[in-house]
Design a protein around this nucleic acid. Structure first.
Length: 278
DNA sequence: ACCCGTGTTCGCTG
DNA sequence: TCAGCGAACACGGG
């Protein structure tokens, strides 16, 4: 499920259910050791059992959980959580584990917190001392367009460093942290920008339109999440997006007679309207 | 059976 | 040296 808006939703869920709470029991799926790389599930259990969740932050698609160790108040342990392709956090009072619960945490107020992830592309990585800045992967992230803001000049400067197609460049987390395959396509559509255009050849006006498109598609998704709606593609769900997964449909820009097309870029589907996206 | 998938990482190539 | 590319990871749904 995760691009920036869904990860922000996960952060809010974790704060609402677990901030300030102590973890009193930990159940881990023995078939999912890869989620706990590099230290392994046993080390994860040791580190978080008895600890209290004191902060939940987000940078792009990365969740940064800070816990205070139970037996030594003041000693911090961090968890860098990533949802991969199919991860999500659920829970509630006595909530039963979902089908693919890989980690289930019992909290000191009776809340059950579950990390659900069928494909196991996610990660729950221990960070000693909660020193997230020391993680190379996190240090390499670009600015978070929601938390840090997004200016057109900065975006254009970043895009100027690569000759790849603009939609492929947007997926590079060192350019901006949090843009994924859906919102990259949505932002290009909103900017009426052809996703195949070379990133280093955008005009200032085009970069500005793209920055507005990114802001708008994230705001759109976050508003839906605030309203309790599901804003990712799921079985039986209605597609809330404008071009993503709409191949063959009429372009939703008013008055545009174009038809949405699917192409493949960097092994990922791209959806766009060849008529109005130039 | 076959293809597709909201993400990342690794190894190869030029 | 490094940007760019393709495979790999793993499982469920259409």
């Amino acid at each position: 499920m995760p691009e920036l808006p869904e990860v922000e939703h996960a952060a809010r869920t974790l704060r609402r259910l677990a901030l300030g709470r102590r973890i009193v029991a930990v159940a881990l799926d023995a078939r999912a050791p890869r989620l706990f790389r590099p230290d392994g599930p046993a080390a994860f259990r040791r580190a978080v059992l008895g600890a209290r969740l004191v902060a939940v932050e987000r940078h792009g698609k990365q969740l940064l959980l800070t816990l205070e160790a139970g037996e030594a108040p003041g000693r911090l342990v961090g968890v860098n959580a990533h949802l991969g392709m199919t991860g999500r956090w659920t829970g509630g009072p006595a909530a039963p584990p979902p089908t693919h619960a890989r980690a289930s945490l019992s909290l000191d107020d009776g809340t059950r917190l579950h990390y659900d992830d069928p494909r196991m592309f996610g990660r729950l990585r221990l960070v000693p001392g909660a020193d997230f800045a020391a993680l190379p992967g996190l240090a390499a992230l670009g600015p978070d367009p929601v938390r840090h803001g997004l200016d057109a000049a900065g975006l254009q400067a970043g895009l100027a460093r690569t000759r790849r197609p603009v939609k492929v460049a947007l997926l590079d987390q060192s350019l901006l942290a949090g843009v994924g395959n859906i919102h990259a396509a949505e932002a290009c559509w909103r900017a009426r920008l052809d996703p195949r255009r070379r990133a280093d050849r955008l005009t200032g006006a085009e970069a500005a339109a793209l920055a507005r498109g990114l802001r708008a598609t994230f705001r759109f998704a976050l508003a839906k999440l605030d309203g309790g709606e599901v804003v990712y593609i799921e079985a039986g769900g209605e597609n809330p997006f404008h071009v993503y997964d709409r191949a063959g449909a009429r372009c939703r820009h008013p008055g545009c007679p174009g038809t949405v097309r699917r192409i493949v870029q960097a092994q990922r589907s791209t959806y766009f309207c060849p008529r109005c996206q130039r």
